[in-house]
Design a protein around this nucleic acid. Structure first.
Lengths: 195, 195
DNA sequence: AATATAGTGGAGAGTACCCTCTAGAACATG
DNA sequence: CATGTTCTAGAGGGTACTCTCCACTATATT
């Protein structure tokens, strides 16, 4: 009952990811995305309410795509130390497999215009954040770590530290070295050990 | 022999820092800086060759201001472990004292338009980077750590990990908790220990 | 006082971008 | 084939920003 789309949503978001990885969120302009996808601007506005909506979708699709495997890794084992190591490894492996989307992940929701997002987009973002917090808190509990300082240390170990490793290389413009997964795992383990 | 300036360079850069901390590098427009400083746009272009030059100066002044005390901390002791801990602590202390400039530091030179910088600005950036690399390499040597993986682990310990701790809080919009310095020091030490 | 110098103040051209709007194309269904 | 629906296609208005340019101002030196 309708004309088939020539440019579907994911195709346009792919173009946006490429631009964001190259020039940051500010490089994701409506005209740049349209040009990169070979689509007219009208088609863009047919899919997305506006630039804020496009930025929100790019960000959320990327974050949710990352989190999918991340939770699995984090909860893959009964031993919390093993789960933590797997989570660290997953961050590096995922970044290696998706370098452009990893470049996005190094920014924050704020850089993708979070202040102008719709309620629905904000809800999706919150949902992911809550799930991360809950998952990390469970890990901390299993490790016997308590208090806000302990929780923070676990967060650093299984989230921020591996991300820093990725950031270090992506910022330098180079690809991740072969030993990156091992290094991330070791460093995370060192932080989880001396709780 | 000349009219005294009403708006000097550092005053304009201060305004730029405020804007960058609030809205990221893209918020640092010439008109926004002019408005924030209460200056006409002509005065801005009298000091800076253009927007790229302004962004470069903001970035470099901030990074150089941070590095000043950082090297001192890193090389403050003959014991490398102690020096590493002092460096971690310095990152957190400096960020607490200069939250807006710390927010800048969480971006990269690329986000401040590095691709369009003048040769002189690029040279200044390189000089800082080289000095950091040399200083961290010296620390790694004193620790008896060798190889690129070892060097990377030390870099993570004394640079990226403390910065991640700061990022975690600034991204959330909150200020650094009281125990942040201690936590950074402990985490850095844990990483330096199991070399 | 005269002059040179460094700076202010702001108008305005040029450009890039966001978004709207209309015309029509492609397809499914009756 | 006729009709309804989704989508393409792109022109164009409005806006924000960068940068240029020139008249004017305040000070130091002679």
């Amino acid at each position: 009952m309708a004309r088939p789309p020539r440019f579907d949503t994911s195709q346009l978001l792919d173009a946006a990811v490429r631009l964001a990885a190259e020039s940051g969120p500010s490089g994701v302009t409506m005209s740049a995305v349209a040009a990169a996808a070979g689509a007219p601007s009208g088609s863009l506005y047919h899919r997305f309410a506006g630039r804020s909506a496009l930025l929100a979708e790019v960000w959320l699709r990327t974050v949710e795509g990352f989190q999918e495997g991340y939770f699995e890794a984090l909860e893959s084992s009964n031993d919390p130390r093993t789960g933590g190591r797997a989570a660290a490894r997953h961050i590096v492996e995922w970044s290696r497999a998706h370098p452009q989307e990893a470049a996005l992940l190094l920014y924050g929701a704020h850089d993708f215009g979070r202040d102008g997002w719709s309620d629905e987009h904000l809800r999706r973002a919150d949902e992911g954040n809550m799930r991360v917090r809950a998952s990390v808190a469970a890990l901390a509990g299993a490790l016997g770590v308590h208090g806000s300082q302990g929780l923070e240390r676990v967060s650093l170990a299984v989230i921020d530290l591996p991300l820093s490793l990725v950031r270090r290389h992506l910022r330098a413009g180079s690809t991740l070295p072969a030993h990156a997964e091992d290094l991330a795992e070791q460093c995370t383990d060192a932080l989880l050990a001396g709780g």
